[in-house]
C-alpha cells in the first residue's frame, strides 16, 4: 500500500466535493463526535420523516479521509431508514477489517485501501459512527 493508493483520485474527489457540508435549519437531531487521536470533529444534523432520512448536513474538521467519508455519508444516507444507516458503520468496519461481505454497498469500497493502514481506520469511521448515533437517536 502506497500513499498514492490511499489518496486515490476517487477519495480526493469525494473529499473535495464537500457533499452535505453545512447545517440543517429547523428541527433535527444533532450529534458531535471527536477523534481523540487528532482532535478531529464532525457535527452531523439529521432529519427523519416517515421513517426515512430526508435531510443530512455536517460540519467536518478533519483529514482528507474523514472529509471523504463525511461526503459519502451525505450521499448514501438520504432515503435510508435509521436501521439501514446504522448498518453502514458495520459495513465500513468489516471493510476495514479486510472482510467485506457481499451486501457491502459498492460505494464504500473506495475505502478498501485504508484497510492496510490501521492507524487511519478511525478517520474513515468517524462520520459513519456519527451517522449511526444520529440515526439511533432520531429513531428513539
Amino acid at each position: 500500500m502506497t500513499a498514492a493508493d490511499l489518496y486515490n483520485d476517487r477519495i480526493l474527489a469525494l473529499a473535495r466535493s464537500r457533499t452535505g457540508a453545512g447545517q440543517l435549519e429547523g428541527p433535527c437531531v444533532r450529534v458531535s463526535r471527536d477523534n481523540p487521536l487528532c482532535g478531529d470533529r464532525i457535527s452531523l444534523d439529521l432529519r427523519l420523516e416517515g421513517g426515512r432520512i430526508v435531510g443530512l448536513a455536517h460540519r467536518t474538521r478533519g483529514c482528507l479521509l474523514t472529509e471523504a467519508a463525511a461526503a459519502l455519508v451525505a450521499q448514501l444516507a438520504l432515503g435510508m431508514t435509521p436501521g439501514e444507516a446504522q448498518a453502514l458503520v458495520r459495513h465500513v468496519q468489516d471493510l476495514l477489517a479486510g472482510r467485506p461481505c457481499a451486501s457491502t454497498p459498492g460505494e464504500l469500497r473506495v475505502f478498501a485501501p485504508v484497510a492496510a493502514v490501521k492507524s487511519r481506520h478511525d478517520c474513515v469511521l468517524l462520520p459513519f459512527a456519527a451517522l449511526a448515533e444520529a440515526a439511533a437517536s432520531a429513531n428513539a
Binding site: 502506497t2 500513499a3 498514492a4 489518496y7 487528532c38 483529514c63 479521509l65 474523514t66 487511519r120 478517520c123
Partner: peptide, 25 residues
C-alpha cells in the same frame, strides 16, 4: 492540508513524523 495527511504522505518519502495534537490540546 491536514497534519495526518501530511504525515501519511511523508511516509512515502521514508520520513517518519508525528501528526495530531501531540497530547497538548
Amino acid at each position: 492540508l491536514h497534519a495526518h495527511d501530511v504525515c501519511q504522505l511523508l511516509d512515502g518519502f521514508g520520513v517518519c513524523t508525528r501528526g495530531g495534537h501531540h497530547c497538548a490540546q
